[in-house]
């Protein structure tokens, strides 16, 4: 399983303890996705980030639902590559 995460670049200089929010999922579990395809939008410090597929495969499990928050390094989904 490949974890889907918000990139380290997005967390650069952000205080530990600050969390991001999943704003919108653009795919569902079971969807086939291409590497680089936008999967979800997440908001961190008023910035809306596009989270993209790290590999081509199928969305196995969505771990963080719309409206929920997550910490740095936390996978928001898993992908079966």
């Amino acid at each position: 399983m490949t974890p889907v995460t918000l990139t380290d670049e997005a967390w650069e200089d952000v205080d530990p303890g600050v969390e991001a929010l999943v704003d919108k999922w653009l795919v569902q579990e079971g969807d086939a996705v291409e590497v680089g395809q936008p999967l979800a939008n997440a908001v961190l410090l008023k910035t809306n980030f596009e989270i993209t597929a790290p590999a081509t495969g199928t969305i196995a499990k969505i771990l963080v639902q719309t409206g929920e928050t997550f910490a740095r390094g936390t996978p928001i989904a898993t992908l079966l590559a």
Binding site: E9, W11, E12, D13, V14, L44, L45, T47, F49
Partner: peptide
């Protein structure tokens, strides 16, 4: 090119 805080 850096994090969003740099842009801000």
């Amino acid at each position: 090119v850096q994090g969003s805080l740099h842009s801000y």
